[in-house]
Amino acid sequence: MIQENEIVSLLLCMGVLYFILVNRSQLKRLPSSNIFVSGFLIYMLGRIFTVLEGLFLGDILNLLEHACYAISSVLLLIWLWNVFKKNERGVK
């Protein structure tokens, strides 16, 4: 069963994706931007699986959803570690 908030959340993710695509050249200035953006994309993939699990392959897609969230969080951690520990040039 599809829940409304899951659809809205996915739509918001697509909005953020559009924002990323439009400003991709500027976002390259974010330290380790690839890791951060990858983290978001995988998070968004998790959102897609959340919606799809209500339609078919509930268990597998649910597993993939949680896997995506886990990977996304690990990427976020790596990104933060890179930014703070390695003290890369970039934002102040």
Binding site: P31, A70, L76, L80, F84, K85
Partner: peptide, 21 residues
């Protein structure tokens, strides 16, 4: 894994709060 990674990220953020960003 997700929970621990996020918790670690929060700790990193708080520990290195005065750096970079």
């Amino acid at each position: 894994v997700n929970f621990l990674a996020l918790l670690s990220a929060l700790i990193v953020l708080l520990v290195f709060w005065k750096r970079t960003l």
